[in-house]
């Protein structure tokens, strides 16, 4: 098991954001986490990266307890996150953004990986010397994904990659995510766009007010009446 979360809890002050979350992700899987705004999806991803304090439970990565590890140690272990809202380093060049994605790595592989990212996203190559803040929303999302991939992650955490993008770009982003899955990248995808996420996912979890309320295969949940009513607008 690549990632095991066991009874995880987290608070913002006195408000409980995560209330006994248990879920897991296996190597090579694309697991989706869907749920309404405010269900705690982003909080869970932040807790996984170590930037949100945890008040209970355990996170294991490849069998090792990482619940108390610093964010930088987790990146070194192979957990990369594409945060909600892209969060590129706007004044820095596209290339510097990519280079910083590989901050925890050294050596010639980094240059080779950067070339791979430019092949994957040719538009980033064209704009490599421009400040990341001048890119369009869709391009920034691609940069954010490429930047996370530069750390050569074992597990890629994607937080709302389709948020705020035009429908055509949303399709493109999901194509990229599917492509990464086909290349064997393990992905934990958080999405409000439940329809697209469930169609893509091997397995999925549904989250409500800090708890996991449903789980199953992606297509299975897509067909579930309750999910349809609550998240797919059918």
């Amino acid at each position: 098991m690549l990632l095991e979360i066991d009874d995880l809890a987290s608070h913002y002050g006195r408000i409980q954001a995560l209330d006994g979350i248990s879920l897991n992700v296996q190597e090579g899987e694309l697991v989706a986490l869907v749920g309404a705004n405010g269900a705690g999806k982003t909080t869970l991803l932040r807790a996984l990266s170590g930037v949100q304090p945890v008040s209970g439970g355990r996170i294991r990565f490849e069998g090792v307890d990482i619940t108390r590890l610093s964010p930088e140690r987790r990146v070194a272990l192979g957990i990369a996150q594409v945060p909600e809202g892209r969060q590129v380093f706007a004044p820095l060049s596209v290339e510097d953004n990519l280079r910083l994605g590989a901050y925890r790595r050294q050596g010639a592989d980094v240059a080779a990986d950067m070339d791979r990212m430019y092949q994957l996203f040719p538009v980033l190559f064209k704009k490599r010397e421009l400040p990341a803040g001048t890119l369009s929303g869709g391009q920034q999302q691609m940069l954010a994904i490429a930047r996370a991939l530069m750390s050569a992650p074992r597990l890629l955490l994607l937080d709302e990659p389709s948020m705020g993008l035009a429908p055509l770009l949303v399709e493109e982003i999901f194509r990229v995510v599917a492509g990464l899955r086909d290349q064997g990248v393990t992905i934990f995808l958080v999405e409000q766009n439940a329809h697209a996420a469930l169609a893509l996912a091997d397995r999925a979890y549904v989250m409500e007010t800090g708890q996991v309320v449903m789980e199953g295969a992606g297509v299975e949940l897509q067909a579930d009446e309750r999910v349809k009513a609550a998240y797919l607008g059918l």
């Binding site: 610093s70 930088e72 945060p83 969060q87 380093f89 004044p91 820095l92 994605g101 901050y103």
Partner: peptide
């Protein structure tokens, strides 16, 4: 300085 959260997520201490 530009984005503390993103820097942490890149593994910058």
């Amino acid at each position: 300085s530009f984005n503390r959260l993103a820097a942490q997520l890149m593994g910058i201490g």
